[in-house]
Structures are given as structure tokens and as C-alpha cells.
Design a binder for these strands. Structure first.
Length: 836
DNA sequence: CTCTCCCT
């Protein structure tokens, strides 16, 4: 029984291509039949020589379904010619030739047998989804093919996107198949001012219901938006069934959403990305797409992953629209302007995800020089290796340890694998529960702040397990979720070779003490002053929800939190006994001498601190030695500003002169003495003058001047004396002070020479400084010292202004000389004696 | 006002 599907005419070409070249890219849209037809078609290929075919699927449901469909086509049971393997579940037999496996399984197969003996071909289905495990599997398979197994066939199957890039990467030919779907018309529905995305969506859903028959599928980024849109739609009281569909619903609830609606009732399904590929929906004729999705972004500094709401890719938008054309012609309404440019496809997971699992696989493989389509980013890899070293999976040279090999074989995330393998034998039953619970969504329902104590999840599981036979309820927990968690826990117990399962309420620290081995970088201690706040070992801060069940716990190991720049919120944590740190993580403790500036007391202090990473476990004051306090004093100056130094007039003037001459004569390369620069370079110019001091007050004004002066070499100091002098000799024979600018933003302003005009008789031109480049700014004064004129042009003053000034002031100051010819008159700084 | 989807 071989059905005719769009892919069918292409099957001979696929066989022929793989006979000639060992790699091939096959582009085929959903509905073409590639998943079920291609593996069967390859079975009799001569080059396969009786070997097995392995096909990777990104989802367990898809792996099971593909195997079942193919077995039925052969008229067999699953486990005969066609079988599948997913975690904790294997249906393969001695005659099995086609193994459908989930992406993570291939890593285990290759690590166990790098030659992949008996396997003739590997098929990567839905490769365009670009999951971490799929990318890794493909890179490892290519490595195997180029070394040990040149005869191995690799077939990458992808929806029609980026096929060309994939083909170039593989150096492989490309074949394309049509799909089977109906045309979908696209409409862009513009947003109105002040409209929320839910309002926009609801308005457009109503438009779709008016314009098209059948049911409507609407895409929103998350559960919160779905709930809001649902209540808006329900309020409108139409003869309408509104159904939510997101991953947090139990499987039973999801089934309900997918079952056919009652006759005569039109249905609106409000969905997240679940509906993009994982489930089939009957009766959908119109799609309304908000164009948004939530994607995880790893934050390397904190080691946590957070969700971001982002615009979807073009591929994703097409996939969503395609959902309207599965049964008949359909329509898609896009809630973004047609002018918006979408990325062609989603960023590969390997570029954004936490990579400790990948790094461990690579360490096990012994090489990270693989033929990647997109290489893992170096920063995230570095962070991943740091974590693996911390967990004991890698040694100092980043080579895999014995524990690392065991972790790899266990097949759990590196964090939980480390905790599982370090646990005492009598704790392993509890470890199996923790493995299952940390990988699952919380089974607890109810007010959110009160479910952050991870022990509650363990208790709910145990309560349900202990009372299961009697059919008792598990408090406010989701029974379906608990059943799934118990299934996973049983799988871990088998793998860990434990017979019994844990029960009852574990003692208060049992859970946390185990989890410390998984999250040693996230142990946290309560702030003494603020009991809701905690300091993490990685240096970050976090706070508890006001209604938290964990209030009052002095020590927490934090599993999950919402990342925030200032105050992250704890979602899941467990208390533990700090003794565990001393006993099992002794190597992470350091004892250090620490200097600190006490701003209140204006004094440098020395401590001996014992720390676990960023957590100060104990601190005692110790006496200061020699220059110990210098860094703390410098920190104190930085905290209080450059003005906190003991600036004398002398020091201020020196600094202004240096700043001015630096502008006038750049070729002298004088140091920059602006506030910010001086603060930055304190170490180089001030340190030695702080030696042996403990308080800032101990720095003398003279020492500051000396420190400034010592920034200049001999030549520079001489140039400063000559070209930016402190004072000038004027024709009266007196020396008068030059006032240099003190403004940081204009250090090269001309210096001011304030002088009575009688003292300048005989001087034709403005005096200059800066090697003749800068005329001084004259403040010409009356005999009484009152300002008459500000000018840099003395000749112009004598010529134009002096005659006026003379007329005006001669009567007022009769005992002072007012000659007609100031150029030749004798300068003087005093008045004529009385009576002459 | 807590969280898309998956997997060894």
C-alpha cells in the first residue's frame, strides 16, 4: 500500500543522487510526504548494503507517529522493520532497518560508537528548525563521514528556506518537491493609534469571521496575551467558542482544544507557537497573526536565560499562514505593516542558547573543530566551559574528566547530571525526582508568588505517589503534569539503577543540599539589612516575592529567576545548609586581604575576608601595612571627586598653567590635567605621595603641588616657567601676576593681566606668553583699581580709547599722569607727591 | 501582575 503524495515522483531522483554523491539537501514543504516516504524508498538502495537508516525528528510525538505510519504502510507492527527510540522509550527489534529517533539520541549513538557501524544513512527531518541537538548531530555526522565513514549517506530535509545555504555548507546537490496545500490570501491589517496588540487582534479576528467561513486560528506571543484576548472576545457575547492553546495546558486540555467544535458553533483558537508546527487543527480557514513570539536569550554574565518578545521570521509567518490552507482556500491577516522587513528565518538556537550540554558533547568527542553550519559563539562556549569546570566535568585544560564521561552517559543536563552523580547512594531516589521536576514545568497551580519553594513540587509529587493507589488528590497540583513527571522520574531511576522511589516529605535541607551541586554559582545568602533580598555567589542580587513561601530562609539555592538589571525576582529556589559548601566545595573558598574606603569615617580600612565567590562568609579587621591603603585612598578620592584634594592657590595655578601651555604648545606633550583625566590617572601621579597614609587629610597641600609638578619632566618644567610664567614684569618696573583660566572646557584661554594703565606707558603692544603665540588678556585699571577696559589689543587701546579715557578721568585723578603721548611717557605705579 | 518551544 503506497499512497501517492507530492514527493512520490521525486523519489527516484533522490535515490539516484544519493547513489552518486553521499550528501543531499531535500526541500519539501509540509504535506509533501517526505517524512514517511523517503525512508521507505531508500530501504532497497544498493549502496545501503543492508545497513540501517536513522531518521532524526525534533519532537517525540513526531518520531512515534512517523514510525507508526511507516510500519502500517508495510503492514507491520512498530518494532519490526520500522522502530523508534526516544528517551526512556525504545521500540526497535533485531530486524529493524529504519530507526526514527529524536535529535538528542544521535549524540548518544555517536559517542558510543564513532564509526556508526551498521548505519548506512542518516536523515535529518525538519532541519530548518535549527535546534541545538540537530545542528550538533549534523556536524558530528559530517565529521564521521569525512573521517571514518566516507560511505555514510547524509540527507538533510528542510522546508523550503535557506536550502541553498545548507547545500553550500554540505557541498551537496539540492532537490525540491512541491507541497500539497490550497492558496492562502494575505492581508496586512494596520494597527490603530493607542490600540493594544490584544485589541488589534480581537478586531481583526472579528473581521476574519465576517469575511470568511470556518474557524479562525490566532497567534499571540504568550499565555498572558492569550488570556487577555480571550476575555475580550468572550465579553462580546457572540455565538462563538473561544479556545486557548499553549504549552502550559495539560495534554488533556490541549486535546479538548483540538477536537472538532459543536455543529453550528464557530471557533476561535488563540495559540502560541505550539500551533505553528506541533499540532494539527481541523477546520481552520483563516489565520490572524500578531507576528510575535517569545524566544529564550542566554545572558552570559548572569548565567540565566530570559525570554524576549521578538518579531517572527518570514519563514515562521509563512508557516503560520499556511495553517489556513490545509483543507481549502484560506486567508491570513497579518497585524504588521507590509513594509516591515522580517528576517528570512529564525536565528539558530546554537547562536543564542546556553551551551554547557553542547560543550560537554564536544569535550567527549575530543574536538570542537567541527564543520558547523553556524559555529557556537566563543563567548557562550567560554562560559559553558567555565561552568563545566565548576561542575567537575572538565579539568583545568578543558579535557573531559571521568565524572564528565559519566555525566555524558547519563544524558541529563550537565548541572543536574553533576548533582545526580555526586549524590550519596541513599539520596539517589530523591535525585531521580529532582531530575524529572527540574526539566518539567511546575506542576503547582495557584497563586504564583507562593509556589517558589521548590520543595513544594517535590512534596506534591511524593504526596501524589504515596496516595496514588488510593486515588487521593495532590493538593493544588496538576494531576496530569505529576503523572508525566513520575514517568520521567521512573526513567531516571532505571538509568540510575535504583529500585525504590522516594516518598514522604524530605527533611528541610535534603532538596537544597542536592541542588547546590547543580547550581553552585547560584547559591545565595539573605541580606542582613533587607530580609527579602539575597546576594548570589555570581555577584548578582535577587529578591523574593512578597508572598514567598521562602521568606526568612538565610541560604537559598536559586533554580530560576526573572532577570532584571537591578532586582531579579526569584521564581524557584530551595533552602540548604551552608555546611554543604564547606564540605563539598571547599576549593571555591578564598581568603584575601581587602582594603576598603569607609566614606563615612573618611578612612582606609584593611580586612581579611573569607569568601565563596562573591559571598563574604567572614571578615575581620587587620592592621594596615605600608602602602596597603593606597588603593582604598584612591577609591575614596574617586568617590568624592578631585575637589576633595587639598588644593592650595599655588597648586591650582600650577595646574591651570600646565593646562594652558598644553593647548598653546601641543608639541611639548604636556600631561592632560582636566578633572576627569586626573581622576583616572591617580595611580600614576598621586600614589607615591599617599604611601604610608591612612587618611586623606594626611596629604599636605605642598605634596599635591609637588605631585602635579612631578608629572612634568625637566624640559617641560623649564618651558612652563618661560612660556606660561606666573607673573610678568611691566614697564613700571613692578611684576604683576598672571591669572590663568580654571575652566576645564577652555584650558587654553588667554591669562589675565590686571594692571593700572599708568604702569604700561611706553609699551606699544600687548605682552605675549606661550612662546609669543598668546597675547594676554589685559584688564586695564584706573588709578583706584577700577576696571576701565578689557582688551588683547594694547596698541588699539592707546590709539582709539585712551584719548576718551584720559578726558574723562583726568579731572577725577589729577595727581596721576595723563600724558598726550602714552608711547613715550614714563610708566609709574604711584601718584605724584602732594603739592608738586 | 512570572514563562515560547523542545530534547539526551
Amino acid at each position: 500500500m503506497t499512497p501517492f503524495l507530492p514527493i512520490t515522483p521525486l523519489l527516484p531522483d533522490i535515490l539516484a543522487s544519493l547513489a552518486e554523491r553521499p550528501r543531499l539537501v531535500l526541500e519539501a514543504p509540509p504535506g509533501a510526504g517526505k517524512t514517511t516516504q523517503v525512508p521507505l524508498a531508500l530501504l532497497d538502495a544498493t549502496w545501503l548494503a543492508g545497513g540501517r537508516i536513522v531518521m532524526l525528528e525534533p519532537r517525540r510525538i513526531a518520531a512515534r507517529a512517523a514510525a507508526a505510519y511507516m510500519a502500517a504502510q508495510l503492514g507491520e507492527q512498530v518494532g519490526e522493520t520500522v522502530g523508534y527510540r526516544i528517551r526512556f522509550e525504545s521500540r526497535v527489534g533485531p530486524r529493524t532497518r529504519i530507526e526514527v529517533v529524536t535529535e538528542g539520541i544521535l549524540g548518544r549513538m555517536i559517542q558510543q560508537d564513532p564509526s556508526l557501524e551498521g548505519i548506512g544513512a542518516i536523515l535529518f527531518d525538519e532541519f530548518h528548525e535549527r535546534h541545538l541537538a540537530g545542528d550538533l548531530g549534523a556536524a558530528l555526522a559530517l565529521d564521521v563521514q569525512s573521517g571514518l565513514r566516507p560511505d555514510l549517506r547524509l540527507l538533510v530535509m528542510s522546508a523550503t528556506l535557506d536550502g541553498e545555504r545548507i547545500a553550500r555548507w554540505l557541498d551537496a546537490p539540492r532537490l525540491s518537491s512541491p507541497g500539497r496545500s490550497f492558496p492562502v490570501s494575505i492581508t496586512h491589517s494596520p494597527v490603530r493609534p493607542q490600540e493594544t496588540i490584544e485589541q488589534h487582534l480581537v478586531r481583526t479576528v472579528r473581521q476574519a469571521l465576517r469575511e470568511h467561513p470556518g474557524d479562525v486560528l490566532a497567534f499571540l506571543p504568550g499565555r498572558r496575551e492569550i488570556e487577555r484576548a480571550r476575555s475580550m472576545l468572550e465579553k462580546q457575547g457572540d455565538d462563538l467558542e473561544v479556545v486557548a492553546l499553549h504549552g502550559e495546558l495539560s495534554l488533556a486540555e490541549q486535546q479538548l482544544a483540538l477536537s472538532p467544535a459543536d455543529a453550528g458553533v464557530r471557533r476561535v483558537v488563540l495559540a502560541t507557537n505550539v500551533a505553528e508546527s506541533s499540532v494539527t487543527l481541523p477546520g481552520i480557514r483563516a489565520v490572524v497573526d500578531a507576528g510575535l513570539a517569545r524566544e529564550p536569550r542566554f545572558d552570559p554574565p548572569s548565567g540565566f536565560t530570559r525570554l524576549e518578545t521578538v518579531n517572527i521570521s518570514q519563514a515562521s509567518a509563512d508557516q503560520r499562514a499556511g495553517r489556513a490552507g490545509r483543507v481549502a482556500e484560506g486567508a491570513a491577516y497579518r497585524l504588521w505593516p507590509q513594509s516591515r522587513r522580517l528576517e528570512p528565518s529564525r536565528t539558530a538556537e546554537i547562536e543564542q542558547a546556553e551551551l554547557s550540554g553542547l560543550a560537554l558533547e564536544l569535550a567527549g568527542w575530543g574536538s570542537d573543530n567541527l564543520p558547523w553550519l553556524d559555529a557556537p559563539p566563543a563567548g557562550a562556549m567560554g562560559q559553558a566551559r567555565d561552568l563545566l569546570r565548576r561542575l567537575g566535568a572538565l579539568d583545568e585544560a578543558s579535557a573531559i574528566t571521568r565524572l564528565g564521561r559519566d555525566m555524558l552517559a547519563l544524558g541529563a543536563t550537565p548541572r543536574l547530571a553533576a548533582a545526580a552523580l555526586r549524590a550519596a547512594p541513599e539520596r539517589r531516589a530523591l535525585v531521580a525526582d529532582l531530575l524529572a521536576l527540574t526539566e518539567a514545568r511546575s506542576p503547582l497551580r495557584g497563586e504564583q508568588g507562593r509556589t517558589d519553594d521548590f520543595r513544594q513540587r517535590v512534596a506534591a509529587l511524593h504526596l501524589w505517589r504515596d496516595a496514588g493507589a488510593r486515588g487521593a488528590r495532590a493538593g493544588s497540583a496538576d494531576i496530569g503534569a505529576l503523572a508525566a513527571i513520575e514517568k520521567a522520574s521512573a526513567g531516571w531511576r532505571r538509568r540510575l539503577e535504583i529500585r525504590s522511589s522516594a516518598s514522604g516529605v524530605p527533611d528541610s535541607h535534603a532538596v537544597g543540599d542536592l541542588l547546590v551541586h547543580a547550581f553552585p554559582d547560584r547559591v545565595a545568602r539573605r541580606d542582613e539589612g533587607q530580609p527579602m533580598r539575597y546576594q548570589l555567589a555570581n555577584g548578582r542580587g535577587a529578591r523574593l516575592h512578597e508572598a514567598s513561601a521562602l521568606l526568612g530562609e538565610p541560604w537559598l539555592v536559586i533554580l530560576d529567576l526573572r532577570l532584571d538589571a537591578r532586582d531579579s525576582l526569584v521564581f524557584a529556589a530551595a533552602p540548604f545548609d551552608p555546611e554543604v559548601l564547606e564540605r563539598d566545595h571547599a576549593d571555591r573558598f578564598v581568603t584575601e586581604r581587602v582594603m576598603r574606603w569607609d566614606d563615612e569615617r573618611q578612612i582606609a580600612e584593611a580586612f581579611e575576608e573569607r569568601r565563596f565567590d562573591a559571598l563574604v562568609m567572614s571578615r575581620k579587621a587587620i592592621p594596615l601595612r605600608g602602602d596597603d591603603a593606597v588603593p582604598a585612598l584612591l577609591a575614596g578620592i574617586r568617590a568624592r571627586g578631585i575637589g576633595s584634594l587639598p588644593w592650595s592657590d599655588n597648586a591650582r595655578r600650577l595646574r591651570a598653567r600646565i593646562g594652558a601651555l598644553r593647548v598653546w604648545r601641543p608639541e611639548l606633550h604636556l600631561p592632560d590635567v582636566a578633572d576627569a583625566t586626573l581622576l583616572q590617572s591617580l595611580e600614576s601621579w598621586l600614589s607615591s605621595y599617599l604611601s604610608g597614609k591612612r587618611r586623606l587629610e594626611a596629604l599636605q597641600a605642598a605634596e599635591l603641588s609637588e605631585a602635579l609638578s612631578s608629572m612634568l619632566d625637566y624640559e617641560q618644567r623649564r618651558a612652563l616657567d618661560v612660556h606660561a610664567p606666573e607673573e610678568l614684569k611691566v614697564p613700571s618696573g613692578m611684576t604683576r601676576r598672571l591669572e590663568y583660566g580654571t575652566r576645564d572646557d577652555d584650558p587654553g584661554a588667554p591669562p589675565v593681566l590686571a594692571v593700572k594703565l599708568q604702569e604700561l606707558f611706553g609699551l606699544a603692544d600687548t605682552p605675549r606668553v606661550g612662546d609669543g603665540r598668546m597675547p594676554v588678556m589685559l584688564h586695564l585699571l584706573s588709578p583706584a583699581g577700577r576696571p576701565i577696559q578689557v582688551t588683547q589689543d594694547l596698541a588699539g587701546f592707546w590709539n582709539r580709547t585712551y584719548p576718551e579715557v584720559k578726558k574723562e578721568l583726568k579731572g577725577r585723578y589729577p595727581r596721576h599722569p595723563w600724558p598726550d603721548d602714552p608711547w613715550t611717557a614714563a610708566a609709574t605705579h604711584r601718584a605724584k607727591p602732594r603739592g608738586t
